[in-house]
Structures are given as structure tokens and as C-alpha cells.
Design a protein around this nucleic acid. Structure first.
Lengths: 188, 188
DNA sequence: GTAGGTTGTTTAAAACTTGAACCAAAGGTG
DNA sequence: CACCTTTGGTTCAAGTTTTAAACAACCTAC
């Protein structure tokens, strides 16, 4: 096949996207580095952890969600652990496994920095969009996400409990319930 | 003011955007690194240069377009120059200035890798969007760009001559025309 | 229990970014 | 012209982040 080039419309959209995402990512990185002392990716790691019922996730799952290599994640988590935002724990049912658990301190950082983060997100993005555009953006990004990740919230549009960018009344202890024993092999 | 949190719609849009842009950027970086031996940012530098009538741009202009520090750009251009994709030239009318010029080899790289790049862009983005969504995306990103950059193509929607992501019949010599002498101070 | 795939870490090297310091050329101003 | 301030761009010395390859422990299945 002789390469289907982009149509003029697609070209314009692509060029605009590249410029905008560069600007956005850069602004966010700067703000978070300044405000939370970590780059956006690391912040996102904490955020993902915070959205989980148990506030913890296996390394591999996390790496897959973030679409980064395990090696890279190891480094990132090591850094976050050093800073006390995350704690490593052994995986109960799979002795190879490691789960990264958000510490209370990590949660606190998330809560403390959320206002500034939200403000930046507003200033750079939502302040310039109409409500229609907001939902269009959601549609578009969801489509991409679904296509590339093959997974994600197909039927669960919003984890609803998410403290991410929302006020959350200081961490309720969250009742114990094993995260996801692989449906087989349980006891020793 | 007590922080205007994101509405549920905005939250969903934001979450989707973050996930999608992570995925996209990562996929692109990987593909370009693999295929053209450089990260997306560097590729974008070449692309910007290629869109210019003279295929050259002053460092400062380039840095502004990319919204990166001059220091960072210096490093990037040094790398691109070492690889032969770009050549540094003195600026005629301002002896402080440096212009980065795309070499034929750099142009060749762009042309050689364009098909793969387009394919990736299609596979990750446009294949999943309706024509309406494409133009919505353009609108949205343009709004962000305009807001954050305060500049950009306000009245010039598409540089039209751009070889970026389009077939371009092997570099026509492009007639000489000084890029942009600052409209004053011409002679010695 | 043994081959084969996973999980996660380690290691060393490389790539990239930052920020401050710096120099040379411009641009005023008196 | 001498002086001072800006601007354009590079350099330097950290520092951070990423990668790739090698590895050890574990699980699975034959």
C-alpha cells in the first residue's frame, strides 16, 4: 500500500494537537514540579494508585496502565518510595509480585497539591472550551484510549470514588478486600 | 477563592485526555525512535524547519514555536547537527543570531520516515475518529494553542506548502528570499 | 523436576533537561 | 562616543530520567 497521507483536515487537526499537547504537558510538568516536586508522570502514578479501592496496584498492572516499561516504573516507584509517597509490599498470592501502595503521606500530597493542579488544568484547558467541546474531547480521547489499550473503563465510565482532582474527606480506612487474586490458587 | 473543582464532565474529559495523550506520545516516541532514531520533539524540530520557505529558522523563533528553553534547544540542535540533519548558520542581519537550517539529509530523513509516521498517527488516532471528531479536535486544540501561545496561525490556517506528513516532490531549490530582516536597519 | 514464560530488580551507560553564568552584539541615552 | 541595559545564544556542571541487557525468583505445565 502506498501510504494513505493525511487529508488536509487531518493535517490541521494533527498539527494543532501536537502543538497543544506540547504546551499542555510542558505547563503541567512545570507546575507539578514546582508545586509537588515531581513530574506529571509521577503524579499520575500516585493518582492511579489513589483511584484503586485498596490504594495499591501491582507493578505490572501499573506499568500497563501507564504504558511504560517495568524498568522505568521500578525507577519511578523507587523514587516515590524514597520520598515516602509510596510503599512497596509483597504480593500475597504471587511471591514474585510487588505491589505499590500509596502511603497516607502520598495521599496527603495528592490532596494538598490538587487545588493548584486543578487551577492549572482549568487555566490551560477548560477555560477555553465550551461544554460541548468538553464532552467532545472526552469522546475523542476515550476512543483513542479504548483502541490503544484494549481495556479501560468500557462499562465503568467513572470510578466514581476517585479522589483524583476532587475533594475527598481524608482517606476512610477502606475495608479489607484482597485486590485481585488471579481467580485460582489461593491457599498454601 | 476555594478552588473550583472539576465538574464530573470535566473530570471524565481530563482523565481520558491524560490517558490518551500518554499513550499517544509514548507510541509516537517509540515509533520515531525506532524508525528515525530520534524522539518526537526532535522530529518536530525538523518538521517545523521543513515548513519554512527557506527551511531555516532562527533559534529563538524555533524555541518559541516549540515553547522550550533556548538552552534545551541548543542541546537538541547540537545533536541534530552532529547527526547531519541540521546545519547552523550565522544570521545575516543580526550578528548575534544563529539560524538552524535543515540539510538535504535532514529533509531526506523526514521524507523517508514520513510514511511510517503517518501510519502510526493513523493507527493511533485518526482510524478511531469520525470526520466530525477530527474537526472538533482541531477546534479544541487550536483554542488551547491560541490561548497558551498568544500567537500562532490566527489568520493563516495552514502553511499549505508544508511537506510535513505530505508527499513533497523532492525539495525544489526554493528561490532566495531573506527570511525576515527585522524591517529596519539594513546596511552596514 | 525440568523447560519455559513471568515478575521485578539491578546495572551501567546514555540521553535529556535544567539553571546559572557568560560573552558578544544590539539598542538606547546623554 | 562612552555607558548601561537587553537580547541571542552557548557553555558548564549538576541532576534527573530512560534504556537495554542481564539476572534471580517464581509460577505453570508437561
Amino acid at each position: 500500500m502506498t501510504t494513505r497521507w493525511l487529508t488536509p483536515e487531518e493535517q490541521r487537526a494533527w498539527r494543532a494537537y501536537v502543538a497543544a499537547s506540547l504546551l499542555l504537558e510542558d505547563t503541567l510538568d512545570r507546575q507539578l514540579q514546582q508545586d509537588a516536586g515531581m513530574p506529571h508522570l509521577y503524579y499520575t502514578i500516585l493518582a492511579y494508585l489513589s483511584e484503586t479501592p485498596e490504594r495499591r496496584l501491582r507493578m505490572t498492572d501499573l506499568a500497563e496502565k501507564l504504558k511504560i516499561t517495568r524498568s522505568r516504573l521500578t525507577y519511578a516507584v523507587a523514587r516515590l518510595e524514597k520520598d515516602g509517597h509510596v510503599r512497596r509490599e509483597a504480593c500475597k498470592w504471587d511471591k514474585r509480585g510487588t505491589v505499590a501502595a500509596l502511603t497516607d503521606e502520598g495521599m496527603a500530597v495528592l490532596e494538598r497539591t490538587a487545588p493548584g493542579h486543578v487551577a492549572t488544568v482549568r487555566a490551560t484547558l477548560f477555560d477555553h472550551l465550551t461544554p460541548e467541546q468538553v464532552s467532545q474531547l472526552e469522546e475523542i480521547c476515550t476512543a483513542v484510549e479504548r483502541a490503544l489499550q484494549g481495556d479501560g473503563s468500557e462499562a465503568a465510565p467513572a470510578p466514581e470514588g476517585l479522589p483524583w482532582l476532587r475533594r475527598s474527606s481524608s482517606s476512610p480506612p477502606s475495608p479489607p478486600s484482597s485486590s485481585s487474586p488471579p481467580s485460582s490458587s489461593c491457599g498454601s
